[in-house]
């Protein structure tokens, strides 16, 4: 074999990879490079919510990239319950611009990581943390969602070779060529029941993980040092979920949890019986309000129906 033969063989092996990388750059499902406009931003956004399996990664990567592009001094941190949050309405009510850093599947570790990230990029003034009693269960914060997107953000090679990015690239291509073949953010028919079953299991094995308070305390210390206003909001759950936790005898644990939270920072508890409607049409599932119903949350935290701070 001579040099020419060797280079030809290397080129033959490299060619498929060059094509795949070129496809990722052209489609750019997370607007990583921001050069290509082949796929519309709307479709890319819809693809973030295609599959529950990839949602945490997709949302984290998308949101940290957008925050880097346009840092905002007010942030919302939390889990999927912030997913369908109406930011324009919030702006209308509060007069302030917020970045929504709520991540589907997010946990206290994600909240802590994303707080550190946003804090490193912008000088934060308002920090709202959507806290969750159910997320305080032991083991809920084991999953590290943030590290992989963060590494991708630093290293374009990892972005080009990441399996989830490739999956998102193909999904974007499919969504462009055959728009009707892709479903976005569609809940299965028995989803309501699945969530209730999951919550029953969560409540039955509930063990309050006190180490999560330390993560929140760290956020509070940092906010205080930099003059940022920190607020915790315990998000509402459907009365059926409230009943599950009450039956499991967890009401006193929850009261203690709220007390501990309020010792760290001002806290609004929206997960009280009777505060939100039982009508299922107001809910996407027992944990998630519809976008319209979330207006009530905005009104209760920032607007005319302001709830007492604990």
């Amino acid at each position: 074999m001579d040099l020419r033969g060797l280079l030809t063989r290397i080129a033959a092996i490299a060619a498929p990879f060059a094509m795949v990388f070129a496809l990722v750059v052209v489609v750019d499902p997370y607007d990583y490079f921001g050069w290509s406009k082949v796929i519309s931003k709307d479709l890319k956004l819809k693809c973030l919510y295609h599959d529950g399996r990839t949602m945490p990664f997709s949302n984290t990567l998308w949101k940290i990239l957008r925050f880097k592009e346009q840092p905002v001094e007010n942030v919302l941190l939390g889990d999927s319950r912030l997913s369908h949050f109406d930011l324009p309405y919030l702006h209308q009510v509060s007069g302030q611009t917020y970045a929504n850093m709520g991540i589907p599947g997010g946990n206290y570790r994600t909240i802590s990581d994303l707080f550190a990230y946003t804090d490193s990029v912008a000088h934060l003034k308002q920090v709202l943390v959507q806290v969750s009693f159910r997320g305080m269960n032991k083991g809920m914060s084991d999953w590290d969602i943030y590290s992989e997107p963060r590494m991708l953000m630093k290293n374009p090679f990892l972005y080009l070779t990441n399996r989830r990015v490739l999956e998102a690239t193909l999904l974007n291509v499919r969504g462009t060529i055959a728009p009707n073949s892709v479903e976005y953010d569609v809940l299965p028919p028995d989803h309501w029941q699945q969530v209730l079953d999951m919550e029953r299991a969560n409540a039955a094995n509930f063990q309050l993980d006190t180490t999560e308070f330390q993560l929140l305390r760290n956020i509070a210390v940092r906010c205080r040092a930099h003059g940022a206003h920190l607020l915790f909001v315990e998000y509402p759950t459907h009365p059926e979920v409230q009943e599950i936790y009450a039956k499991a005898g967890l009401d006193p644990v929850m009261a203690d949890y709220i007390k501990r939270l309020s010792a760290i920072a001002p806290t609004i508890d929206l997960d009280r019986p009777g505060l939100f409607p039982t009508d299922r049409s107001e809910w996407r599932d027992p944990l998630h309000l519809t976008t319209a119903a979330q207006h009530t949350v905005i009104d209760m935290v920032w607007g005319p129906k302001k709830q007492p701070v604990e």
Binding site: F17, S147, E148, M151, L158, T161, R163, L166
Partner: peptide, 8 residues
């Protein structure tokens, strides 16, 4: 190696 490597 490229797509299934554990780079993280």
């Amino acid at each position: 190696i490229v797509f299934f490597g554990s780079f993280y």
